[in-house]
Design a protein around this nucleic acid. Structure first.
Lengths: 202, 202
DNA sequence: CGGATTGTGTACTCCCCGGTACAATGAACG
DNA sequence: CGTTCATTGTACCGGGGAGTACACAATCCG
């Protein structure tokens, strides 16, 4: 991905991905507004000047961190959609959420939820970004359940949109519970209970 | 409640409860750290000096606001516990959450969730307060389901603690969905779906 | 070698944050 | 009336927030 060919000028002394990963931990733990530039650059091991040169500003850094989060710790979401039955999709999503939000080496909870649920006025772009992020996740699950519906993979009378909203709601709830201190085991139990709400055909 | 008898000195020119109610709206919408003293006192219609004289400081104001929230907009929680069956308790709780988090005259979502899910270091007392608030809610529901269990009001093999954690998880998820823009109708649908996870005996 | 170009470190800017000092105010009480 | 005392408004405080100016360092290219 990194292409250094033909680059002129002084070379960057840090790795972009490593810096983003460090910033992710901070935003994840403290939220967009709770993370100060001093917190961020301290964890990234670079100065404010280098951060601004490489990423633009705090908001742009957050956007890149959210993208990294989506492809990294939250990638179970994409993978869940590829399961072969609606039930397996739902289970992979909820179990993945239980796991990803309780890892010991990362902050508990979900960046997409606790990163900017509420903000001051100046933080509204970040808040809007995560609103879109959550809505996109819901839409993708709805589309997956729509497909399951046409494939006869959903019980009769089960509405794909309503079911997707329900599963996403449980996933968000799991994120809040993780931030509150619940263990992966407890949250896997929640996932199992939640899955009983549907008479999956398989 | 207010006892002005024998009070000496210049009388307060504003109503404590009205001021707290105004502060509640601000904390609810912007979170503990997202709400500045200028935001708060502006909405309360008083000066910073009056706020400090009446409530102590920002953190103490938040504690009083959370108490008011518990007795006011979140009082459906207490009321739900008094329903006569476990199923009715769960339904009242989830429908109450769907309603309270989507009122047009108040911010969407739940103060207990979005008030301080993540904070900077200086906001950790507020964050801890809401962690306790959420844990207390879970404990009360668990106790209610424990009672239901001894009364034979829960299906055999249904664990009160696990069930309480599940219901609370859905409630928190509803709060996140409300903050994301979902309507009361959609969230009532979520509540109905969630309730199907248990074979209530009634 | 000598630009041109890009990244780095220091030292700053401006602004808003939570919190407070202090004098003026207005009611109760003798 | 004058004393007492909690409340009020103004004007301020130190600190930390995001963001930047500028000189210097390190590489590429000719």
């Amino acid at each position: 991905m990194a292409d250094d060919t033909g680059r002129v000028g002084r070379p960057r002394e840090f790795d972009l991905d490593e810096a983003l990963t460090a910033a992710l931990q901070v935003f994840w733990a403290k939220g967009y507004e709770g993370a100060s530039l001093a917190d961020l650059t301290g964890a990234m091991g670079i100065t404010k000047t280098s951060m601004y040169a490489a990423f633009g500003n705090k908001e742009e850094l957050f956007r890149k961190v959210v993208a990294l989060y989506t492809e990294g710790p939250a990638s179970y979401g994409h993978r869940a959609m590829e399961e072969s039955t609606a039930r397996e999709v739902a289970e992979a999503l909820l179990k993945g959420a239980a796991r990803a939000t309780t890892q010991i080496e990362s902050p508990h909870g979900c960046l997409g939820v606790q990163g900017a649920l509420t903000t001051s006025d100046s933080g509204s772009p970040a808040r809007d970004l995560l609103v879109d992020w959550r809505n996109d996740g819901g839409s993708r699950l709805e589309e997956r359940f729509q497909r399951a519906h046409t494939e006869g993979d959903l019980p009769a009378g089960e509405d794909p949109r309503r079911l997707a909203t329900y599963i996403m709601t449980v996933a968000y709830g799991i994120a809040v519970q993780a931030a509150t201190g619940r263990s992966e085991g407890e949250l896997r139990g929640v996932a199992d209970t939640a899955l009983r709400a549907v008479d999956w055909t398989d």
